[in-house]
Design a protein around this nucleic acid. Sequence first.
DNA 1: TTGAAAGCGCTAACAA
DNA 2: TTGTTAGCGCTTTCAA
Lengths: 337, 337
Amino acid sequence: MSDVARAAGVSLMTVSNVLNGRPNVGAETRLRVLEVVDELGYEINLAARRLRSGRTGTVSLIVPRFDHQYYSELAARISDVLAPEGLHLVVEQSGASRERELSALSLARLQQYDGVLLSAVGLDFQDLDRIHPDVPIVLLGEQDVPDRYHRVKMGNVTGARLATEHLVECGARRIAVLGGRLEAPHPEMATYRARGWAQALEAAGLSPDPSLAIPLESFSIAEARSAIRERVQGGLEVDGVLGVTDEVAIGAMAGLRDAGLVVPEDVQVVGFDNLRVSEHVGPGLTSVDPGHDAMVAHALRLLRQQMDNKGTTPEHVVSEVALVVRGSTRRPVNDRK
Amino acid sequence: MSDVARAAGVSLMTVSNVLNGRPNVGAETRLRVLEVVDELGYEINLAARRLRSGRTGTVSLIVPRFDHQYYSELAARISDVLAPEGLHLVVEQSGASRERELSALSLARLQQYDGVLLSAVGLDFQDLDRIHPDVPIVLLGEQDVPDRYHRVKMGNVTGARLATEHLVECGARRIAVLGGRLEAPHPEMATYRARGWAQALEAAGLSPDPSLAIPLESFSIAEARSAIRERVQGGLEVDGVLGVTDEVAIGAMAGLRDAGLVVPEDVQVVGFDNLRVSEHVGPGLTSVDPGHDAMVAHALRLLRQQMDNKGTTPEHVVSEVALVVRGSTRRPVNDRK
DNA sequence: TTGAAAGCGCTAACAA
DNA sequence: TTGTTAGCGCTTTCAA
């Protein structure tokens, strides 16, 4: 920068003012500086700027895994919204293990950004309660969090209830919740969605059969596929499957096919997330749409509030869900006259 | 840091030495410092460290889109390899437009990292030739690049040839290349893969019909689906489809189904990338596996070479591809006696 | 509208 | 083994 200042015959401050688009620079001076910048191929040192000013122009999104589609679609959506505002998004992977998560979340890391969107499944209430980041932060996701955090979550119970009600209406009676978990030390996605499943069954007068709540470890397509195949081949009777995510539901469709069952004739399937691919697999996957765009808008509004003035009261926002009906479920029984 | 030093009764340097795990610190002193660090909740300022030392402990992967599955799987793979080495991966999206790409690639941005893996589709030879980053950088991808860059690419032509040969062996005669492009200003993924398609057809004595090379803009599932549906419904005769990516092939399978055709009985389909989902869609997608792990290993080796000693001669590595046969293609005709 | 001085928090180099 | 000094490249503050 001092090279530029010298070559342009101005002071460091003038160069800085030009590069930051500040108003108090003469038009002629500005041009001369820009010319020299170009000529010398000068690029600003962001580390120095950050050290001095604190600003970085960068927001971070921290997700458990890059290769879970829900997160990569989320990242793309957020990036597309931030880019026009001049903010840059970087995505980090926390690895879903508490250890890697805590390291990714060291305050040192977080402090590098103007704001952080944190979708951390491995951290529980106490972890989050212990840390006091002074970076604007919004939590995305389903775990229980201390009140002082801003947070956006899906309508998990409602969505799972909607999905299960739909299966019941379409004639399913033995409905499994693949990836669902009836009990867990901390409430999480898998328990909330299992709760919605149980609520819908009870409301329909069908008592939830615990053997139909099939827990998963990784929620991967492959795991879901073999899990449902093994249960069905082991004699489990099923005429409906609620996958706790769309990836799980896609695995379920494959596993049911493996077992010689046809979707939706023998077994109906519903997912949760409404991924972009879901429209295009098999007969089309009926899925709970979590209101992606609204969630992103909420999250960024909450983040911006904190970035602009530190004193906002924390909000907990729950997104509105909606069922998207496709070919993996049949028509409601009432419609079939 | 000076607070810590004062509270522990040592100098700044000793604190720095402890935090960096440098050897020249007495065991007792180290313990005392760590205690105070814990007590005060001190966290190092990475911006300052970066400014002073240049090191960041962070590698960046720049991809066109977060939500193209190939890239998210790539990111996860790279992150999983880097994490045990104590390096952190951040992923940035360049947006596939030249403008956003150039901004994501401003040297200022790149300089923030110890190394950069760049998968940039919008930049051409001349863009890359103009910039002279002094950060270690490895290019991933299919575009033509100046010799001075290290680069890892897929065996595009070979892979597409393998895939097309397989379709021919399995009895297909009217084979479309969906997303393929016979001519383009700069060679790119879509042209290389179309070239492999054409080579295989010619070798089999089938001359490539230009109307069977169906270009796409975004290579999205939805676009691929409607493109193939419209062609087929418009009278295009096809008994095999090579999707230039697995996402395109998944779209193709959906579009063929829309048009009333059955895979693989009426039309056989092959993809390229061997995504994790591809095993689980429809009858299972036959696909070209680009050797993901080997590519990652090559790329990180080349990056590390540059990070360790600046004077390595640039390498251009081409990964070995292999065909993974699944249900979307039939058995080779010769096997069917 | 422009410039000079100070310092952000850390680490390299050297000294004790 | 520990400490001192200087300065990374920028921006804030204040003065001209």
